[in-house]
Design a protein around this nucleic acid. Sequence first.
DNA 1: CTTTGTGCAAATTCTTTGCACCAAA
DNA 2: TTTGGTGCAAAGAATTTGCACAAAG
Lengths: 139, 139
Amino acid sequence: MRNGATYLTECGLRPSVQRLAIYNYMVTHPTHPTADEIFEALRDSIPTLSKTTVYNTLKLFVAHGVIDEVFIDRTSERFDGNTLLHAHFLCNCCGAIIDTPIENPERVNDSLPHGASLNKTQLLYFGTCEKCLNQPNNN
Amino acid sequence: MRNGATYLTECGLRPSVQRLAIYNYMVTHPTHPTADEIFEALRDSIPTLSKTTVYNTLKLFVAHGVIDEVFIDRTSERFDGNTLLHAHFLCNCCGAIIDTPIENPERVNDSLPHGASLNKTQLLYFGTCEKCLNQPNNN
DNA sequence: CTTTGTGCAAATTCTTTGCACCAAA
DNA sequence: TTTGGTGCAAAGAATTTGCACAAAG
């Protein structure tokens, strides 16, 4: 695994205790966490941590390409430590967000408007996951 | 153009004055409007309209498949009267949301998790549109 | 010492809820 | 005369802002 402090420095960001903790949380938890989830997870180890700092840091990380924002959930902002192109599936039944690989990126980026330049693609699926389909009771 | 009252009735929805106005606004304005934009546009013709009704109606329309919600903007909920599969491009420079056709839907739905069933796909692009690329001044 | 980062409290914004009134079947 | 629809005001939730203090170069 990549060294967080070195990586943040490479990205032009000072590796403060707070930033490093948030970065490490993101790369070890591929769960597309919200700012609040990160805050709750880290407040034990950093009791003085504030939610503002979590928000500031996540925004900063997105601006520097360290993490991505995932637009799959309108109720709260979700973040992804994996910035490589992949699809997201949201199960309407259990709420799980499942990552899936995109085999042919060029096919997915096929529908760009004429003459536009592309920064980021998001491919989102909404449906019912295999597990929920096999447990008809919890609907 | 399809008759709105007939269509809403077919969908099992009473075609009240408010619902019909919102439906007609959606199909004639392919601008992915927010609840607030719809409210502001309709309050002249329906002075008693409330924002709650706009929210209620949009939510109801989504539940009945009359319109879709587009997840491209986290700051406010956006809606789309065109429920056929197509991609959305958000220009980071001018904020425009551009619709583009998806030639091969089966290619885009290629990356579904194993065993899952699919309700809806959203393909989102973020970048700079042709117009903004040709006007370097407004960056 | 000068810039950058952190964190508290308050403000802001979007959306939902509770409830009463109105309208249609 | 009962069910469904509308709309006001208030509540709720997520995020941002203003500002003061702390820390690092």
